[in-house]
């Protein structure tokens, strides 16, 4: 899903990083909500959720980095100037690579912002 194919242009890789963001977001919120519903303050259910969110964040960032590298390659490692608006196969590929790279940057920042509360908030009650 993450890799822009050889000759066939497809839009799928473009949504790779945002999809990682969406999955990370949903999983973090659902995990924290379930943990907070179950925890009793004496157990480590919430702590487990915090660590779990940390691990998911590392995995999500790794997946986005992987997608970014491929997008960067497809774009041509920054050798060509945007906007890549010509009606050619190269430009279409470069455009897709460039757009994927930008979305990957946005997704990475979002994943970090979503995870920050888990780093700061030590207990559930509120």
């Amino acid at each position: 899903m993450f890799i822009h194919g050889g000759r066939n242009e497809t839009l799928w890789p473009l949504i790779g990083p945002p999809a990682v963001w969406a999955i990370h977001f949903t999983a973090s919120y659902v995990w924290a909500a379930i943990a907070c519903a179950k925890t009793t303050h004496e157990d480590a259910i919430y702590l487990t959720a915090r660590i779990g969110i940390g691990v998911m964040t590392v995995l999500a960032l790794a997946a986005i980095a992987y997608a970014s590298y491929h997008a960067w390659r497809v774009w041509g490692f920054g050798r060509y100037e945007p906007p890549h608006a010509d009606d050619t196969e190269e430009d279409r590929r470069r455009f897709l690579g460039y757009a994927t790279l930008l979305l990957a940057a946005l997704s990475a920042v979002s994943v970090i912002f979503v995870a920050l509360p888990a780093a700061f908030i030590p207990e559930c009650t509120w």
Binding site: H41, V109, F113, L116, I121, E123, T125, W126
Partner: peptide
């Protein structure tokens, strides 16, 4: 803007214990 937003988010989260003291 991303750095400013990150700083504001961290600042607001860091204020949490004063805003809503932990139950314990």
């Amino acid at each position: 803007p991303t750095l400013i937003l990150a700083a504001l988010l961290a600042y607001a989260l860091w204020l949490m214990p004063d805003l809503r003291p932990w139950t314990r």
